[in-house]
Design a protein around this nucleic acid. Sequence first.
DNA 1: ACGACTTGCCTAAAGGCTTTAGGTAACTGC
DNA 2: GCAGTTACCTAAAGCCTTTAGGCAAGTCGT
Lengths: 189, 189
Amino acid sequence: MARVGLTTERLARAGAELADEVGFAQVTVSALAKRFDVKVASLYSHVKNSHDLKTKIALLALEELADRGAAALAGRAGKDALAAFANVYRDYAREHPGRYAAAQLRLDPEAAAASAGGRHAQMTRAILRGYDLAEPDQTHAVRLLGSVFHGYVSLELGGGFSHSAPDTQETWSRIIDALDALLRNWPTA
Amino acid sequence: MARVGLTTERLARAGAELADEVGFAQVTVSALAKRFDVKVASLYSHVKNSHDLKTKIALLALEELADRGAAALAGRAGKDALAAFANVYRDYAREHPGRYAAAQLRLDPEAAAASAGGRHAQMTRAILRGYDLAEPDQTHAVRLLGSVFHGYVSLELGGGFSHSAPDTQETWSRIIDALDALLRNWPTA
DNA sequence: ACGACTTGCCTAAAGGCTTTAGGTAACTGC
DNA sequence: GCAGTTACCTAAAGCCTTTAGGCAAGTCGT
């Protein structure tokens, strides 16, 4: 009965890898147990239940994404910051589709409060420092940026833009150009 | 052994209702059988398997959404058309969250080809007739609009904007204003 | 109207995932 | 080296999926 050394942390990390390999929806307590070559019941000492496991993976992904965002924003401003931050989302989703899907999990209020969600909002707001927007337009713009990033990435990942010219990289660049132009010229009510 | 009169069609329709009530992820062959007061195995004459059922619900939702979109676009142009079409997505998602989630299901190529996906793209392109955009910018714009609509709606539905001022209706209106302004003034490469 | 065919719904059964209860063996520290 | 903790185990119940095979309720030809 050799001990494997399970921890909540290691389970979440392995769950994230599993998600990237087989899809977040296919992440299961059972599959994770197989990956550690351990009986299923053993995981229940480290994780409350299946939903708890998924939540932990989601929190991990949000954390990673926020870290990457912060790194990208450091020392950048204006359109440069906008583009770098946008690319963080897109690249992360392409490198880690399962984790990105996990980050979209609807969290209960408690988990949401403990998540890196706030950091994401703060960073988006920081990008807008390079543009001249007062409240409430700033909040509207934060929400727009969040919508575009998330919407584009999830449509692209889901194959919504597949096999049609022009290629998605080109579109992505032009969308960032367009957002930059829009933020510099935000219509007043 | 009274016959209930199951059909693929009725199953998809009832599945869509079930999705709106308990969430698309909770739609299960088993739950659907209970709803018809019929044994689970009976459904397998009308539906290949669980995934097939979900696909049929997704196709139904895409169809409904396209129908609403077409109705909204009839007799409208420019910003008027843009706003009406955008509201179709948002309203549909709010009225039918389960169906909307179903519409996001990643379809295999065969199902995707048979879906109303093409109609959606065509309608978005039709909206752009009110603006002066040549290819390839038109395609970029189609993708941007799709991203914003889907991204905003799914973030709002997921509670991403909850409990923070200003309210989401206000943001939604201002985002449509912003998109209109952007399309009238699309930045040239 | 009645027999034959079709088919809609059934029972039975196997396999997988989740979750809980309770046991045993491996580490930890005095 | 012993006591206590804890990591992992076995066992079992419950629910969902899916397939195989059966009977009765419809439908159709004559």
